[in-house]
Amino acid sequence: MAGQRGTRVAGADLVDLLTRAQRALVRDLGTVLEEEGCTVDQWRVLRALAAEERSMGELAAALEIPHPTLTRVVDALVDSALLYRTQSEEDRRRVSVHVSPLGRTKLNRLESLAAAHERALATRIGPETVTRLTDLLRDLP
């Protein structure tokens, strides 16, 4: 096994480790957000729309979520009255998505849960480690 490790490409280790960490963090956060009946993708969509309306295309690009998946996520949030859509008067093909007042209230609760989750992570691995990781990950392309 040690011989195999020496022949592995360093970048492949990085991708594997980042993927495993991302999946574990999403799984743990997802468990926390389930208390509010929300998924991680739904929370990410609400967060992305909190500051400004966006078209579905802009939202898909910003969140790196495939269009079909994003459509399902947004449909569920619209059905729950957390989001609503409007059609552009200039271009009927352009549909913008907005957070409703109910969605803002829900987002505030979700943000509290996510912040508590991050504080628990910082307690477990150390706040300095969280800060270093955050800084390093922001520098990745």
Rank of each mutant, 00 (worst) to 15 (best):
A50K: 06
L18S: 09
L17W: 06
S80I: 01
Q42E: 09
W43T: 01
R93M: 11
A81M: 10
A76P: 00
G3T: 07
S112L: 10
A24W: 07
V26H: 14
L49F: 04
T129H: 07
R47K: 15
N108F: 13
G126A: 00
L14G: 04
L25W: 05
S88Q: 07
T105E: 15
G3H: 14
L82A: 03
R132Q: 08
L107R: 03
E111K: 13
T19R: 09
R23T: 14
T105S: 14
T39I: 08
L17E: 11
R92S: 12
V73W: 01
L83H: 01
V74T: 03
Q4Y: 11
D75V: 08
A21D: 07
A60W: 04
T39G: 10
C38T: 13
L14Q: 14
S55E: 02
C38F: 05
T7H: 15
E58N: 01
A24I: 07
A81H: 14
E111I: 11
L25H: 07
L140C: 11
G6T: 11
R104H: 15
T129I: 10
R44K: 13
L25D: 09
V78G: 03
L110W: 00
L63I: 05
L140H: 06
Q4A: 11
S88R: 04
G11P: 05
V9Q: 06
A114M: 11
S80W: 04
D75M: 09
L70Q: 00
L59H: 00
A48S: 12
S80F: 03
D139C: 06
V32R: 15
V45F: 03
Q42H: 02
K106S: 12
D28H: 03
E52V: 12
E111P: 09
R5V: 15
E53G: 15
E111W: 08
R92C: 06
V130T: 03
P68F: 00
N108E: 15
A50S: 09
H117Y: 13
K106A: 06
V40G: 01
E52K: 15
L70T: 00
Y84M: 14
G126N: 01
L63K: 04
T19E: 09
A116R: 04
R94E: 12
L82P: 02
R44N: 07
G57S: 08
R72C: 02
D16V: 13
L82C: 04
